[in-house]
Amino acid sequence: MNNLVKSELFKLRKDRSFWTLVIGLVLVAALYPLLIFYDDSTADVSVKELFVYTALGGNNYIVKLVPCILAGFFISSEYSIGTMKIMGSSGNSRIRIYFAKLLVFTLGAVIISLIFPIVLTGVGAIFAGFYDMPGLGYMLRAIGLTVLYAAAFASIMALFSIIFTDSGKTIGFLILFFILFDSILYALSQKFSFIELIFNNSAFKLFVDIGEFSLTNGELFRLAIVPIITYIVLAIVGSFVFQKKEIK
């Protein structure tokens, strides 16, 4: 298992799509504050508001959409180039292969999810003279929850990546899925009470609440446990699907 993880880490470090996404996000996050501070009248911008509404708000889309591109190239493309077939015949169990790839892909998704809020807030704080900084505890909590939800969404992406086995189909489907699924689930929840219960306790619904300032212990526990359960369940489902998958 250790060698498989090392192999996947090496592939992630050499993955051009991953570094293209990382560099692109760093540039966007670093340049975005310039648009805010270009006007002299915005000199007293609150770093707290910048972090909550701009960094975390904009990151909602990044966490759910940008790693879809990485999933297509890092996982699905290995079917078309024959890498998955070689790995399947290497003597390692498919469960180990899948979990090694899932863990490293999750790491890539987490890195992608943290770039925008950290870089944008850091650059914005410098321009704002560190005016009205958010509390360290609040920032760490928001960043930690972002990591958990990025992992949860990564487990969904990994599952569909091994189902479609084609990078183009995977990327297209996942982007449409993450754009439309929560809206469809919300519409159905208005008509069916059991779907409403599922929606209100889903990672899609709770993800938008990670930036809330005042959370009770019960709310914080639910925000933390739902993505963890989501990740574990979908990781198990994904490993089962991969075991049954025909690799050509």
Rank of each mutant, 00 (worst) to 15 (best):
S41F: 15
L56C: 01
N60R: 07
L50Y: 07
L56I: 15
A43C: 05
I36T: 13
K64S: 03
I62D: 01
T54N: 12
Y53E: 08
Y53V: 06
I36C: 06
F37S: 02
K48S: 11
T42K: 13
Y38L: 10
S41C: 10
V45G: 02
L56G: 01
F51Q: 03
Y53T: 07
V45N: 01
A55M: 03
V52A: 07
V52G: 02
A43W: 14
V63R: 03
G57F: 11
A55R: 00
V52I: 14
L65C: 06
Y53N: 10
L56K: 01
D39N: 15
T42M: 12
V66R: 01
D44A: 15
V45R: 02
P67G: 08
D39M: 10
D39C: 14
N60T: 09
P67H: 04
Y53L: 07
N60E: 09
N60W: 08
N60F: 09
L56S: 03
F37M: 05
I36H: 09
Y53C: 04
Y61S: 12
E49L: 13
I62C: 04
L56Q: 04
A55P: 00
L56M: 14
G57K: 11
V52M: 07
Y38W: 11
L65V: 08
V45T: 11
D40S: 13
Y38T: 10
F51R: 04
G58W: 03
I36M: 10
K64W: 00
I36S: 09
D39T: 12
F51Y: 12
F51E: 00
L56T: 05
A55H: 03
T42R: 12
P67D: 04
E49Y: 15
V45W: 03
V47E: 00
N60P: 01
A55D: 00
F51A: 03
G57P: 07
L65T: 07
Y38K: 10
V66D: 02
I36P: 04
L50T: 01
T54Y: 13
D39G: 14
K64E: 05
S41Y: 15
A43I: 13
N59K: 06
A43G: 06
V45L: 08
A55F: 02
